[in-house]
């Protein structure tokens, strides 16, 4: 079974790490992926709701509401995707034992993540105070936009916290070159958040 095939690959088979760890990692990885699947369903449901409301024949954006500012959001998206790239390199560096590089890359990721959140905060402030579009007061537009992007923003926020914990943990020697499941999970989560954003960006700003 899968456990056996793991032991074939890469440095794991040198016998540096024990069977228990390998099997546990397998379980956690699968569990974590399934968690992401169900999280994805959560987003999908709200996306369905948004598309359903959007197509209920009222025109979009509804009267009195301007189209969203694509340019700014595009820049902000680039920031988020950039952080995806740095996260990728962070993990690669860890795997190859370049721990300093890893740390820098992870810090970049966190900074970019915070940057994205600031951008979103700026966008929200603008919408609320300048365009008078609010979560509850602007009909289905406000409801779907703030709920979905807010949920995503919350995920980014959780991600930033999680990555910070990972940074501290790796500095504190929790992970080794061979045992770094937490870092894998963090990377997966961060990529997941990126992918969700691709979808949200397309359906809110481009569609």
């Amino acid at each position: 079974m899968a456990v056996a095939s793991i032991t074939q690959g890469g440095h794991d088979s040198h016998g540096e790490i024990d069977q228990l760890y390998i099997e546990t990692r397998e379980l956690r990885l699968q569990g974590f992926l399934l968690f992401l699947v169900s999280d994805c369903v959560l987003f999908s449901s709200f996306i369905f709701a948004y598309l359903y409301l959007r197509n209920s024949g009222q025109g979009w954006p509804p009267a009195g509401i301007n189209r969203l500012d694509v340019a700014f959001a595009a820049v902000n998206s680039v920031v988020l995707f950039g952080s995806g790239a740095t996260m990728h390199y962070a993990l690669e560096n860890w795997k190859h034992g370049n721990f300093m590089k890893f740390a820098w890359m992870l810090i970049f990721t966190i900074v970019l993540g915070v940057g994205f959140l600031c951008g979103q905060g700026y966008e929200y402030t603008n919408l609320i105070f300048h365009d008078h579009v609010s979560w509850w007061g602007s009909g289905i537009f406000g409801a779907s936009f703030f709920t979905l992007t807010g949920m995503h923003g919350f995920h980014v926020f959780v991600g930033v916290c999680y990555l910070t914990v990972l940074l501290l943990q790796s500095a504190g020697g929790v992970y080794t070159k061979d045992k770094y499941f937490g870092l894998t999970a963090g990377t997966l989560y961060w990529h997941f958040v990126d992918v969700i954003w691709v979808v949200l960006f397309s359906i809110f700003y481009l569609l």
Partner: peptide
């Protein structure tokens, strides 16, 4: 129409109710 009516009406068949009928 776009300016004053679309808050309540859609340019859609009668059955598409927004606040008032389509």
């Amino acid at each position: 129409f776009a300016q004053k009516c679309t808050a309540c009406h859609a340019m859609a068949p009668f059955t598409t109710v927004k606040y008032g009928p389509g």
